[in-house]
Design a binder for these strands. Structure first.
Lengths: 340, 340
DNA sequence: AAAAGTATCTTAAACGTTTTCGAAACAAAA
DNA sequence: TTTTGTTTCGAAAACGTTTAAGATACTTTT
């Protein structure tokens, strides 16, 4: 059963030509309502479905989107933030009839090819890029290639970019901490990147706007998803003669590392010293007490990326190339306590 | 630039037939070494790469694997355990020249089709299934379909299954706790499933083998990834007249919930009361103190799944249909302390 | 020297579609 | 009645490959 039934089989069964079958199944005008219904009925009765390869070969449209979430330093799939973005991207792409497959640069028994070559080989209609070293020449090549592309959290000249609003996010987070009475706020930031830069400058600027001075020793370099560094930095901060009352971290992972240090020192997070994360991954928001964090709207990020990409594919002329930024939302949690 | 160059272009450039080009590029015997080298050189010089659709159409081999990680209750991608398995699967599949794309049951503007139809439409060479309601008739249909398939953590009659060894895992975990001196061990287990059943019976059996009696009130129903239930259960357990000294949880998420309750009560995990998780997700293993947990070997799980699947595709006759179970490894962490 | 074998290359069909263009049939307009 | 238009359909080429079978030239065997 289910041995492939082709348009040829249907055309035989219906006594029409194979061209007519194609037209009927694709709802082209060039056909009478009567035969169209008959063909459709018989086709579904025979369990027909099209052959993606043949269709793609003929139309050079694969209805397949490539995603580039590389996993060297930061493994895409196992990185909560990007996993959530991808999950959302996947859902909306699939709802529009697109499948998604991963881009890689493995060879098929041959020498490694580039990302762009892989994309052209598979005939992806479009590509989304995230969680990547954007300065990798192979990534550059892909972006300069002639296929529709949207990037996430990084902007390239003349390409659509979906950006999480790190400026506003950090501003909201700092503002929240200040509203809780904190004025001695430390920041363990992530390793250098454009995202880090945005957050860092927003941190300084917001503090300044409230007339808060940030001592140099309050700003330490940690790293994303690095609990150990966060642990060490936290210890260091709390041993200061004038320790901060509130500590910000590059992400929720790191914040959990910081909380470890706080517990280790016999203190209670949110009571003796406040901490806040960034990202709003599920585990952080469901801890006890829940972590105060800035929840990045991964759902919207992924959805917009898919929508824009598909729009770019369908109507390259009329979709405007722009960077859209999506706001996160402060998640109060319980680890930033009221003071004074 | 990079406008598609086909075999036709190469054959023109080389003054040979298309067939000869195909043979040269595919290393068929039927050709002289000299022309083969010449063709290969010119092909690479012209930036040629094959067209996947055409190749798939002709050979009915797509070098594309379908993965079914559905996301309703438990969203596949955002589920740490499965995300890691998938990540490993992806890496080894890609190293063997296969791409991977997600299976879904969305229609292309039409009525929703089944998983199996999607698979046949795309011409996937094989399929891996995980993180799924295995009793879904659409899943059943896919598994009974005529394509190579391997399932993860669930066994179907006459199909390859890759199983994490929950029996041994729970046994090792309990044994470790006992080795630390614990004899009053509670278990907040997950919702009903075959995995839960395995772990629960292994828990009882191991305790029994050490002559340890498990009071009824030590075994509570929590749920996977549910921090709140774990929090509540933990409170309940610690309020007992004779509270346990050690508490086991369905997974690391839940354990973190339990730790929250312990902190809330002014106690120190690993000192005043011990806790252990299950899975060994990165955040748990990098907390301070690190969570004692049973690290499931997601790397091997994913790799074996890919290897077996590809083997099944390449040589259906000689690959044995069996369920292979892969052992996890105890991660001592620091939340199960020595007692007495 | 004829026959047979071997190495190398080409022709052409096929995979399952889509699409252009023309054909046929019929209706409407002149 | 002839012309023109409209609707519905089919023939055939094309997409870029693979592959079976045939063709050619050259070697070897007898």
């Amino acid at each position: 059963m289910s041995q492939k039934v082709s348009m040829k089989d249907i055309s035989d069964a219906c006594g029409v030509s194979i061209a007519t079958v194609s037209k009927a199944l694709n709802d082209r005008g060039d056909i009478s309502e009567e035969t169209k219904q008959k063909i459709k009925f018989i086709a579904s009765d025979m369990g027909y479905f099209p052959n993606a390869a043949a269709k793609a070969l003929k139309t050079s449209r694969s209805y397949n989107l490539g995603v580039l979430f590389v996993d060297d330093a930061m493994s895409g799939l196992t990185h909560d933030y990007f996993a959530h973005v991808l999950d959302s991207f996947k859902r909306t792409a699939e709802a529009s009839g697109y499948d998604i497959t991963f881009i890689n640069s493995q060879a098929e028994g041959e020498q490694p090819r580039s990302y762009l070559e892989h994309v052209q080989y598979r005939g992806f209609d479009g590509v989304v890029i995230a969680c990547v070293n954007f300065y990798d020449p192979k990534v550059e090549e892909l972006i300069r290639g002639n296929i529709p592309v949207v990037t996430i959290d990084h902007v390239f000249d003349n390409r659509i970019a979906i950006m999480s609003n790190n400026i506003k996010g950090m501003k909201d987070l700092v503002t929240y901490c200040i509203s809780q009475g904190h004025r001695k706020i430390a920041y363990v930031h992530g390793a250098y990147s454009s995202v880090t830069q945005s957050r860092l400058s927003s941190f300084y600027k917001t503090c300044e706007s409230f007339g808060i001075d940030v001592p140099e020793e309050y700003v330490l370099e940690g790293d994303y998803r690095n609990t150990s560094k966060a642990f060490a930095c936290t210890e260091q901060l709390l041993k200061l003669k004038d320790p901060p009352t509130c500590i910000l971290y590059p992400d929720d992972f790191a914040a959990i590392g910081g909380i470890g240090a706080i517990h280790m020192m016999g203190l209670q997070p949110g009571i003796d010293v406040s901490v806040a994360g960034f990202d709003g991954i599920p585990i952080a928001m469901r801890m006890h007490p829940p972590l105060t964090t800035l929840h990045q709207d991964t759902e919207t990020l992924g959805r917009l990326a898919a929508q824009r990409l598909i729009s770019l594919i369908d109507s390259p002329r009329t979709t405007v190339i722009e960077q859209v930024t999506v706001d996160g939302q402060i998640f109060p949690g319980g680890t930033v306590g009221k003071i004074n």
